[in-house]
Every structure is written in structure tokens, then in C-alpha cells.
Simulated scan of single mutants.
Amino acid sequence: MIAYEHGTTLFHRLDPRSKLVAQFGFAFAAVTTTEPSVVAVLSLVALGTLAVARLSVFRVLWTYRFVLVLLALGPLFASLRFGPPWLALEHAPPSLLAGYQVVLVLFVSAAYVRTTPVRETRAAIQRHVPGRAGQLLGTGVGLVFRFFPVVLRDVRRARLALRARGGDELSTRERIQRLSLLTVEQAFSRGERLALALRARCFSWNPTLPRLAFGRADYPLVAAGLLLTGLGFVQVLGLPAAGSLPV
């Protein structure tokens, strides 16, 4: 599981707002483009982002392995037909490209999670989404980032405990039923303890959040995010590229 880790990389020193703008622009451009040259450039950007964040490609792929399995099945499902011909292989490449685009977005998102504290993300959201909606959204994001890894660890422990008690001898259906029941029970137990801890610590909807300030490196990143967003709109609207405009 990828979570925030303290570090001194360039991305650690950037403002979370600039990283969010750049991440949105990258994701928008990645999922809307079909040009091979643009996809190649975005691939280099994604790999460079992981390198700057000091995050291994293999670690990201292992973390999102279940998502990758579903993406790998996408071309097969896209090619299946309910009558002859049973396979339409011409539909596989677009599905394969869409899956690859999602992988690029996961790379950039993993770099953001790795280099951005949860409190800074919450501060960025609450200071730009007004009212109780921003407070609720910021609190929800913070709780998800902290609560989800704990739930995953509980699932792994439940699976190991089931295996240690002879769970491998059960049928697949019985294993899934018991593991699901254990996971739900542990999740509700975690939720009750979380609610009690929040009350004990005088949980506030409007806590004192860290100060956010742009540095010199944030402005080029915001400009890159806006440029990528514009590129995405060009792809969506089908506008001609600059080199193909009529004279």
C-alpha cells in the first residue's frame, strides 16, 4: 500500500494545490488523447514523475495489481460477441489503449500520495471549497487516506488467519463468505473505534490546518497542468492542431 512518506524530494516541497492542478491536467490529457506521440510523451512524464518522487514502478504495479488484472481483461471482454464471429479483435486495441492510459494516471496519483501529507491535501480542499461542503469533503478525504490502509491490513490478517486454520481445505465459495464476513465485522469495529477516538480528541470540523504557500517551482507546475488540460479539451472537442490550421 502506497502512503505518504517523509522525504526531501522536489515533489515533497511543492504546494499540494499545484500538484492537484498538474495531476488533473495530466489525467484529463491522458484519458482523452489517442495520438501515439502524445501518449509516448505522457508516458515519459509519468515515469519521470515516479523517478522524482523516488517511487519504484514495480512497487506501484504491485500495489495496484488487482486493478491491472481488471484492465488486462478489458480487451478480451471488448472483443467478445454473442454470435459469429465470436471475437471482434478490432475492438481490442482501443480497450488496451484505455487500460494503458489508466495505468499512467495511477503512476502520477501514486507519486502524489507518496509525497503529500494528508493534512495538506485536506487544507487545499477546505480552503477552495467553501462552507460545510468543503469541510465535509476535506474530512472525508483525510479519513479515507488514513482508514483505507488499516482496512487492507485487516483483510490480509483475516486471510492469513483463515489459511492458518485450514481455510485452504474449504471451497472457494466458503472462503469468500467467511473472509467477507470477517472483513465487514472488522470494518464496523474499526469504524466504532474511530468514532470514539474522534469524540475523545474533540474532533473539529474546522481545525487549524497547515499554511499553504506557492514557491517558485509551483508556478511552472500549474502552467503545465493548465496546458495539459487545454490539450485534453482540444482532443475532446476535435479541434485541429496548430500546425494544421488553415492559412
Rank of each mutant, 00 (worst) to 15 (best):
A158W: 04
A161Q: 12
R157G: 04
R157A: 14
D154F: 01
F188C: 00
R178A: 07
E169N: 08
A164H: 08
T172C: 05
T183V: 02
A158P: 07
E185G: 00
G167D: 03
V184K: 02
R153V: 06
L160C: 01
L181H: 07
G166V: 12
I176K: 09
L179R: 02
R163V: 15
A161Y: 11
G167Y: 07
R156G: 08
E169Y: 14
S171T: 14
I176Q: 11
A161E: 15
S180P: 05
E169Q: 13
R157E: 14
D168N: 09
R157T: 14
R173C: 00
L160G: 02
Q186P: 00
R173G: 12
R153P: 01
G167C: 03
E185F: 06
A164T: 08
S180V: 12
L162Y: 11
R163L: 15
F188H: 01
R153T: 05
A164P: 06
L179H: 07
E174T: 08
L179P: 02
R173P: 00
G167A: 03
V184A: 01
R178E: 09
L160D: 15
E185N: 05
L170R: 13
A187S: 05
L182H: 07
D154G: 02
R153E: 14
A187L: 00
R159P: 04
R165C: 09
L160W: 15
R178S: 03
R163I: 14
D154N: 07
R159I: 06
L182V: 04
D168G: 10
L170I: 02
E169F: 15
R159T: 14
L181I: 11
T172W: 15
R163N: 08
A187Y: 00
E185Y: 04
R156P: 02
L162N: 08
R163H: 13
L170E: 05
T183C: 02
T183Y: 02
A158H: 10
R156W: 05
T172I: 06
E169P: 00
R157H: 13
R175C: 03
Q186N: 07
R178C: 04
Q177M: 05
V155P: 03
L162H: 15
Q186T: 02
S171F: 07
D154I: 02
S180C: 09
Q177R: 15
L181R: 10
L181S: 11
E174K: 09
R163T: 14
V184E: 01
L181N: 03
E169K: 08
L181P: 05
L162G: 08
D168F: 11
D154Y: 00
A164Q: 11
G166T: 07
G166M: 07
I176G: 00
A161H: 08
A164M: 13
A187T: 09
D154E: 11
L162S: 11
V155D: 02
A164V: 10
R163S: 14
T172M: 09
A164K: 02
E174W: 07
S180D: 06
L179A: 04
L162V: 11
T172D: 14
A187N: 01
Q186G: 05
V155E: 01
V184F: 09
S171Y: 05
E185T: 09
A158L: 11
E174A: 13
L160I: 12
Q177A: 13
D154K: 00
R178H: 09
R175G: 04
T183I: 03
R153M: 01
R157K: 10
E169H: 12
A164N: 11
L179T: 03
L162I: 12
T183R: 01
R159Q: 14
